[in-house]
């Protein structure tokens, strides 16, 4: 069943949305969704790495010997991750301090690796680019949804452009539990459940 070009892009947004459908990349999703801004930064970083590495791997897929393909993929992905890390340090240092170790860990995040192996190594560059972009945006949206939910319930407001915005009145009692580590598991579980119910038809 061949997909159209548009479907390559849109599948990452719903049908195969990474954290909920493919259940990949859960470690960062648990760790960095305690604040909305972190989620946006992390999502954009992953989208860039995913698109870049997909295109490059697709471009060189015919010259990579099958036996060393995983090594070659890792080198390509690690290069893009280091690019992101350096650029983040140079231009958005405050965000870099918050995301810390999770940026270098994108290298071993299953999403870029999984897309390289399952998709980019078998498809042409245009399709790989759209696949990477779609998956990246899908991942970003998932992170944003989860982070917004956690931050709003836990603090009664949301921080946008480093400015806190209060959404509920002073009577709201912040539910701090949700920004702690156990809250991440509970929220992720709830969202997975909701996604399963929605996708059951």
């Amino acid at each position: 069943m061949a997909k159209t070009i548009t479907q390559e892009f849109t599948k990452g947004l719903w049908a195969e949305i990474p954290p909920f459908r493919l259940v990949l990349g859960l470690c960062p999703i648990l760790a960095i969704t305690n604040a909305f801004e972190n989620a946006v930064g992390m999502g954009l970083a992953v989208t860039f790495v995913l698109t870049g590495s997909n295109v490059l791997i697709s471009a060189i897929r015919k010259i990579i010997p099958p036996k060393v393909r995983i090594v070659a993929f890792i080198v390509v992905i690690a290069t893009f991750v280091t690019v992101v890390e350096l650029v983040m340090q140079a231009y958005t240092y405050a965000l870099f301090l918050k995301l810390g170790i999770y940026i270098p860990l994108i290298v071993v995040n299953c999403i870029p690796m999984g897309r390289a192996e399952a998709f980019a190594s078998k498809n042409n560059m245009v399709r790989s680019a759209l696949d990477g972009l779609g998956m990246g945006i899908g991942y970003t949206l998932s992170l944003m949804a989860l982070a917004a939910f956690r931050e709003i319930i836990a603090t009664g407001g949301i921080t946008l452009y480093e400015k806190p915005v209060a959404l509920f009145g002073a009577a709201f009692e912040p539910f701090r539990f949700l920004v702690e580590a156990p809250g991440a598991f509970v929220c992720l579980g709830l969202m997975l459940g909701v996604m399963n119910i929605l996708g059951k038809k």
Binding site: I60, V68, A72, V75, V76, L86, V87
Partner: peptide, 25 residues
């Protein structure tokens, strides 16, 4: 040969980028 070329390209690119961003960092 293939792995060497990929690694060389990657190393060269990153070295150049590091040089370029060092001062800002």
């Amino acid at each position: 040969v293939v792995l060497t070329i990929i690694s060389l390209a990657s190393g060269g690119l990153l070295a150049a980028l590091r040089d370029g961003t060092q001062e800002r960092i």
